[in-house]
């Protein structure tokens, strides 16, 4: 896809406290599409988003976002680049001491010098887009989990970013809230022309909205392509993940000593 890639990772190696999380990941994320990054829990999907956002630096390899080499950016340039990114955190990460309205207004107040009435209008527009215009006076503690995530989504699109990253948007949501979020992500992408990166392990929801998907396991990309291509992927590991089989190439048991030895049987010597 070459020139249309908005984000491209090349041979990224990253390890934390002695454990190697990524072992040479190469991945292109196309501009203006929804890309799903899937993988079992604990494979560092969130870490990948933090690498893209420049909160973490890879040990080696390159992370390019919109033509900028993120790990080498100076502080100021990095903060400028982040203004073009929105990120939806798993917990929503709303500021608990501010109301819904002020939460959405926060990036506008910090990064723009817009007059108060304009901020008011923009915030209401963004809240309208997620269907929560009526909730603007509530405090974050008064919101349900799904509403929190929608407010956070409104906040991350307040500055009209080019890229939006969703960290596990569907985790722990009831079916209705999940349906709302799926619809929102799809609508936002098509109406605003955003590049969306979706990190999730909810296979059916992710595959239903993404244009392109890739599966990460053991620090490597084990499969990528369109949802149709993935469903027909030859790798057993990919199939096990997509179909949710309990045992397969990824074993049910955590690596352990021989069971007989652990229980004090066998051996006998």
């Amino acid at each position: 896809m070459g020139s249309t890639a908005y984000i491209s990772l090349k041979d990224v190696v990253f390890s934390r406290s002695g454990r190697r999380i990524f072992d040479g990941i190469t991945l292109d994320i196309p501009r203006g599409k929804i890309t799903a990054i899937m993988g079992p829990s604990g494979t560092g999907k969130t870490t990948l988003l933090r690498l893209i956002g420049g909160q973490l630096r890879p040990d080696s390899g390159s992370v390019r976002v919109d033509g900028h080499e993120v790990p080498r950016l100076k502080r100021k340039a990095l903060y400028a680049l982040r203004e073009k990114m929105g990120m939806l955190f798993q917990s929503g990460a709303l500021f608990t001491d501010l109301s819904v309205f002020e939460n959405v207004a926060f990036p506008l107040r910090v990064h723009t010098k817009l007059p108060e009435d304009m901020i008011h209008d923009i915030v209401l527009m963004k809240l309208e887009a997620v269907g929560l215009r009526g909730a603007r006076h509530l405090m974050p503690s008064e919101l349900s989990g799904g509403m929190t995530r929608r407010v956070a989504l409104a906040r991350s699109i307040a500055l009209d970013p080019e890229l939006i990253m969703y960290d596990e948007p569907f985790a722990g949501q009831d079916p209705i809230a999940m349906g709302v979020l799926v619809k929102l992500i799809r609508d936002l992408n098509s109406s605003m022309g955003l590049t969306s990166v979706l990190v999730s392990h909810d296979v059916p929801e992710s595959l239903s909205i993404c244009h392109y998907a890739c599966i990460i396991a053991d620090g490597k990309v084990i499969g990528e392509g369109t949802p149709e291509e993935l469903k027909a992927h030859p790798s057993d590991q990919v199939q096990q993940f997509l179909q949710g089989q309990p045992d397969g190439p990824v074993p049910f048991h955590y690596p352990a000593d021989d069971a007989g030895k652990d229980f004090g049987l066998g051996g006998g010597a």
């Binding site: 956002g53 955190f89 990460a93 910090v110």
Partner: peptide, 13 residues
């Protein structure tokens, strides 16, 4: 609750 992180991602130190 990732508030600090999200602030950082919004370009606020």
């Amino acid at each position: 609750t990732e508030q600090l992180s999200s602030m950082e991602m919004m370009g606020v130190d």
